[in-house]
Design a protein around this nucleic acid. Structure first.
Length: 228
DNA sequence: GCGACAG
DNA sequence: ATCTTGTCGC
């Protein structure tokens, strides 16, 4: 475990859940981000039938060019043996070790990080985006392609339409129709970014695609076999 | 006890 | 997440 590490990663489910409850109290839900000039996108993919975990981090320059295109400043792909199976609610324990190794190899310092997965929209308010933000002590936003917990009505069918995601009397995120006619995405605060601000950034990074550019590019790097 | 369940 | 071709629609 590194000097700045919050905890060890070799925990059984019971210990992991207890740890999440402790860490959740340390997640900052208010805005506390520096001026943004670099935005990172993170995603994890698997190879060899799941035996190998592949973490991808892409850093884009902000703002995009006049043509709307984002300049790719840096990218890192890290592979390592998969350590745990997927357990709903404990995703970060399976994916973060590889993601952190990828960040260790990153030379640039993005002021904002967008993660493929939930942030506060988690049963114990510690989705992978929040967990990563806490560990790196950096602002993060969670963008998931499906729901983990909470309830919501169906958002309008036009790009930009949104409805709140509520869990136990609390608004934990926003269900956003990022592209008309396509399944909505679930946006939530990760760490040091409020929900309104998180939504602003996601919308600002949206092309004509469903996913914002940072995670969309990380997605391709993590899932495709071809070098990009 | 019976469902639900990020990636 | 991943296994996988063609096909429907803007």
């Amino acid at each position: 475990m590194s000097p700045t590490a919050l905890h060890d990663w070799n925990l059984d489910p019971g210990e992991a859940i207890a740890l999440q409850k402790q860490l959740a109290a340390r997640v900052e839900r208010q805005d506390r981000l520096a001026e943004v000039t670099r935005i990172a996108g993170v995603d994890i993919g698997f190879e060899q039938g799941g035996e190998v975990t592949r973490a991808a981090v892409v850093v884009l320059a902000w703002p995009p060019g006049t043509d709307g295109a984002f300049e790719r400043v840096e990218q890192v792909v890290h592979r390592e043996p998969t350590r745990l199976p997927y357990i709903p609610g404990l995703l970060s324990f399976r994916e973060l070790p590889a993601a952190l190794a990828a960040f260790d190899r990153l030379t640039s310092s993005p002021e904002l990080i967008m993660v493929d997965g939930q942030g506060l929209a988690h049963p114990r308010r510690l989705g992978v985006a929040s967990h990563l933000g806490l560990w790196l002590d950096r602002p993060t936003i969670g963008i998931a392609k499906s729901r983990l917990c909470g309830h919501h009505v169906e958002p309008g069918n036009e790009r930009g339409d949104r409805v709140p995601l509520v869990h136990k009397e609390e608004t934990i995120g926003t269900v956003l129709r990022s592209r008309s006619g396509v399944k909505p995405v679930f946006v939530s605060s990760g760490h040091r970014v409020s929900l309104p601000t998180a939504l602003d950034w996601v919308v600002a990074c949206l092309g004509r695609t469903k996913l914002p550019e940072p995670t969309r590019m990380a997605d391709r790097l993590a899932s495709r076999r071809t070098a990009m």
